[in-house]
Simulated scan of single mutants.
Amino acid sequence: MTDTQTRVALVTGATGGIGLAVTDRLVQDGFAVAVHYAGNKAKADETVAAIKARGGKAIAVSGDVADDEAMTAAFDAAEAEFGGLDVVANTAGIMLLSPIATLKLEDLDRMHRTNIRGTFVVSQQAARRLRTGGALINFSTSVTRLQFPTYGAYAASKGAVEAMTLVLARELRGKDITVNAVAPGPTATPLFLEGKDQAALDNLAKAAPLERIGTPEDIAEAVSFLAGPARWINGQILFANGGIA
């Protein structure tokens, strides 16, 4: 069990890309962390071992974010280990790209299950479990503003994330729990970089006034802000994109 001064976070999708950077940043901020994974147990165990090696507190928890029983068990495990939860950073999501006219409906359903139902399930657990002074941070995308071709179904799923985030913030009136979403722009994760040549990356870098592509650490900084000092920011979508939109 942690002492009463240690804040506790559960990070979904914590084993790759932005989720891993968020996990690392919250550990740096002094959080004990429940490292959630869906399928990559080896990476989760490696992440936990690395956190413990540098003196941090962490456990691995598993489950499909869209499975309410699995996520109930994950939240239960975090509470049993650490005594409670103060922050939930819900980075888990999938992105399947295609023009709307040719998108396979099974791909639409997959994104709906993970991005919409999964966010709903995790948000529901967070609303029930977070301690006073807690924070839920969901994940949207700057593509809801950028309207890039082939991103239609993905952006639609994240539009739903924004809607439920804003409503939940109002529903938790009086509980001293903030609910916000981070909406990253182009970010140099392995998934994002895959299949893009240098010219495409250079063009994306020029789109932002800061003239670079974001890093996972940039996004983790925004999560750290919402998880810690940003108590007067509530019911908002924070666009972390270098000014691209």
Rank of each mutant, 00 (worst) to 15 (best):
A50E: 06
A50M: 05
A53W: 10
A53Q: 15
R54W: 13
A58R: 02
A60D: 14
A60L: 14
V65K: 08
D67A: 13
D68G: 09
E69R: 15
E69Q: 15
D76W: 08
E81R: 14
E81T: 14
F82A: 00
G83M: 08
G83K: 11
G84N: 11
L85Q: 12
L85P: 03
V87A: 06
V88K: 04
A92W: 04
G93T: 07
I94A: 07
M95N: 15
L97G: 00
I100W: 00
K104W: 09
D107L: 07
D109W: 09
D109V: 05
I116F: 02
G118L: 09
G118P: 02
F120W: 14
V121S: 13
V121R: 05
S123Q: 13
S123M: 14
Q125R: 15
Q125I: 12
Q125Y: 11
R129I: 00
L130T: 04
T132I: 13
G133M: 12
G133P: 01
A135R: 11
L136D: 00
F139D: 04
S140C: 04
T144S: 04
L146C: 10
P149G: 12
T150K: 01
Y151Q: 07
Y151T: 05
G152Y: 01
G152R: 02
A153E: 06
A155F: 12
S157G: 00
S157N: 05
E162A: 00
M164Q: 15
M164I: 14
T165Q: 02
L168M: 14
R170H: 09
R170T: 08
G174N: 09
K175H: 08
D176E: 10
I177G: 00
I177Y: 03
T187E: 10
T189S: 09
E194D: 14
G195I: 02
